[in-house]
């Protein structure tokens, strides 16, 4: 899957949890789920689960640790898809 395609999917996944709509308009690789989008931490669990469902991958705990930006998520999704 291409990076742009992954980012497009991520944007759809993240949308319902976003608290800062202004920052969401600039959604891109550098976007931080917490600092920029101000997503509640419990909803970060939902995002991890949604990503697993959408991309049909399993995100282990070590990978989940660092999934705080769009860039991190793209990297993790790509590496898990390679393993699959």
């Amino acid at each position: 899957m291409e990076t742009n395609e992954i980012i497009y999917c991520l944007k759809k996944i993240v949308k319902p949890y976003v608290q800062n709509d202004v920052a969401f308009q600039d959604f891109g690789q550098g976007t931080d789920f917490i600092k920029d989008l101000e997503i509640n931490s419990a909803n970060l669990v939902d995002i991890v689960l949604d990503v697993e469902d959408e991309f049909n991958i399993a995100i282990d705990n070590d990978s989940m640790d660092n999934m705080t930006t769009v860039n991190d998520a793209v990297r993790i999704i790509k590496s898990k898809q390679k393993q699959a």
């Binding site: 509640n40 419990a42 669990v45 939902d46 689960l49 989940m64």
Partner: peptide, 17 residues
């Protein structure tokens, strides 16, 4: 708000946390 915004009963939630 937690009851509205977070469904901890969804599949996989408890196992992740």
């Amino acid at each position: 708000l937690a009851a509205r915004e977070s469904n901890w009963r969804r599949k996989g939630f408890l196992e992740k946390v």
